[in-house]
């Protein structure tokens, strides 16, 4: 097992535990719940072979579901964004499969990275809240929940990213 795989495994376990033990208990205004564990899907290496990302996303969602008694809701949502990730990658970064080898998120401009992450987060949160609700009643609630949670997740992600990067330079 090389260093990169080990780091990925560590972040897989770390993010799952962070989500289920801490973030699932943060409920601002009663219903805003940040889902930060999906950054695993953004930091997963960009490769031509897409089976690893699909299966990792599936198991990531499954573990989060296991802890939060939600059946297969998170599994469904994470697998969806893992599948559509390359298409969004192509659209937002204007790059093809040839560039995968040399691509790092930190070298891209903030605007591009933000658009990429924000749109995938929005899709994920929408699917999660739609399936949690499990009916077409309270549809307004779903939209409000999605938007507020999405904003909160993004703030957490970018603040965390900022702090993390500063530490590495020292």
């Amino acid at each position: 097992m090389n260093k990169r795989t080990f780091n990925l495994l560590l972040s897989f376990i770390g993010l799952t535990l962070l989500q289920v033990l801490i973030l699932n208990n943060i409920l601002i205004f009663g219903y805003v719940n940040p889902y930060l564990y999906i950054i695993f899907i953004f930091i997963f290496p960009y490769k031509v072979n897409r089976f690893p990302i699909l299966f990792s996303a599936f198991f990531l969602g499954l573990f989060v579901d296991l802890f939060s008694d939600s059946g297969g809701i998170h599994t469904f949502a994470t697998t969806t964004i893992a599948y559509i990730r390359p298409y969004f990658f192509k659209t937002f970064f204007q790059k093809t499969e040839v560039d995968y080898e040399f691509f790092t998120m930190s070298q891209e401009s903030f605007g591009k990275v933000f658009n990429f992450i924000a749109s995938l987060t929005l899709i994920h949160h929408f699917i999660v809240f739609l399936l949690i609700n499990f009916s077409f009643n309270n549809f307004l609630n779903v939209i409000v929940n999605t938007l507020l949670s999405c904003i909160f997740s993004l703030i957490l992600y970018f603040v965390g990213n900022f702090i993390f990067r500063r530490k590495q330079q020292l």
């Binding site: 579901d65 059946g71 297969g72 809701i73 697998t79």
Partner: peptide, 15 residues
């Protein structure tokens, strides 16, 4: 992808 989604959906409905 479809296969994994069907499994996830099955778990959701089963729940």
């Amino acid at each position: 992808f479809i296969l994994l989604q069907i499994i996830a959906l099955f778990l959701t409905i089963n729940n």
